[in-house]
Design a protein around this nucleic acid. Structure first.
Lengths: 140, 140
DNA sequence: AATGTATTGCGAACGGTTTGCAAGAGGGCG
DNA sequence: CGCCCTCTTGCAAACCGTTCGCAATACATT
């Protein structure tokens, strides 16, 4: 996880905004919205501008270091992780967790076999209620 | 699929914008963006305003008649369909197709069993290339 | 240290979505 | 059938997250 090397390799400079955004993302265990990232970055260095945060996120995504998820209304960011991760989104508390499921690879095979389609990335988003949460107050 | 009854039942009125938006959505086989919907609605009745389209989409979603997907950058809309549908999004031509996969239900069971989580809706989004498309010109 | 260039901060622009409000139209009732 | 009440609409302005242009800054190389 040497941000510097990855940047160098592609002739990008290691700058303060880039380092701080990357730190924030890699230290977080949950998905963060652009606003949350900007806020935390700003907390660590008030001199870093929002537009740099956006530019950095775009760059890191380009480098496949972070991944943008559009699971909920506002998109969120997280360090890139291996494929085949399932996102569990709690309808009640809003938390997003990861979960490994062996079946995802089976799914990939099934799709490749039956759909005339060559799958690359598979995203599974599961809405529901996590164990810590009571049933949603406003069931839809 | 009697839009009128469903609206009545909840004390909403059947108005022209609502009827036209619903028609456009239910006649389309693919996902439509808000802009596409607005455009087609406007084609059928130039008097219908964009804001009514948005308001109608929100209402229909509330009534579970349509579903908003956030698969790509801009979100798209489609008539609500049964759970467990897989969305195949071609990285090349951008088309979104549906695909049934029996394994989704197995996945649900696996999650319920192993994740301390009660799944309700499962969304599977598969990026890849569809058979009609050549390999993407700009592989990422 | 000096230099050349990528990158930043800033503020303004953007574009899709939402909102406030007066005018308009469903539809229940007489 | 027409009235009336109220829900909806059209319109235009407001919003808000994101992007952009540009001069100033700060990386990295020498």
């Amino acid at each position: 996880m040497e941000l510097e090397d990855i940047l160098r390799e592609r002739d990008f400079r290691l700058t303060r905004p880039r380092r701080v955004v990357w730190e924030v993302l890699s230290e977080s265990e949950r998905h963060l919205s652009a606003a949350e990232i900007a806020e935390e970055v700003h907390r660590r260095d008030p001199g870093i501008n929002v537009s740099s945060v956006y530019r950095t996120l775009a760059l890191l995504a380009e480098l496949d270091l972070v991944r943008e998820s559009r699971l909920t209304e506002t998109s969120t960011w997280e360090p890139a992780h291996a494929d085949a991760v399932i996102h569990l989104v709690c309808e009640n508390c809003g938390a997003t967790r990861h979960h490994d499921a062996a079946l995802v690879e089976d799914l990939r095979a099934e799709i490749a076999r039956t759909a005339d389609f060559a799958p690359s990335v598979i995203d599974v988003r599961v809405s529901g209620t996590c164990a810590k949460c009571p049933a949603p107050s406003t069931p839809r």
